[in-house]
Amino acid sequence: MDQPDSPRSGVTRRAFIKGVIASGAVASSAAYLFRAGGEIFGQTSAPGSVERLITLNVNGQMRRVDVMKQETLAMTLRYKLGLTGTKIGCDRAECGACTVLIDDVPHYSCSVLTHTVRGRKVQTIEGLANGDQLHPVQQAIVDEQGFQCAFCMPGFTMAAVGFLKTNPNPTRQQLAHGISGNLCRCQDYDKILTAFMRGAEYMRRSS
């Protein structure tokens, strides 16, 4: 978080967070804040506020993108950069479906402001494979037929890839702890662990 609250800008970081808290606490439908690019409605962008047109390093590519100051990385990826592989399951850091790697560390992209990842390396599920060559962890999922509906799969996979970078040879239990920030409602956890243990093996072999 390197953006100061600016009393001159329409929506401050504090107000944004307050909005998030309020909408989470009442039966309100105003639970999500999102603004597409282009004309701005209901908010003036005062001089001195955050620059909107920024460059992001996503999956090894430098992408110019118009980002509102309160926009989350999940929304930028999905609605500005067309990277819909990153899923939004809860939008409140509960389920992990939106997990991406930021400088190789798994983060919930629903809870990261896009402006905070400037100058950092973002990797999504789309950036794992090398052309048609699947990442070892992806190959392991295919080989073990990991996951069922697979809506949680991208987030789980990024969490596992991130964890395996720090612990390439985990026990099943260590791996479970490493990816315990992700939910699967098909509750295919046993097979998910089997697939990722194989993924760990493939990664060790390929490195």
Binding site: G85, T86, K87, I88, V142, Q145, A150, F151, M153, P154
Partner: peptide
Amino acid sequence: TPPDLVAKVTGRARYAED
């Protein structure tokens, strides 16, 4: 291997909101 699995694992599978 179900024919939709690679699309799922690469993020290309499109669900309604995609």
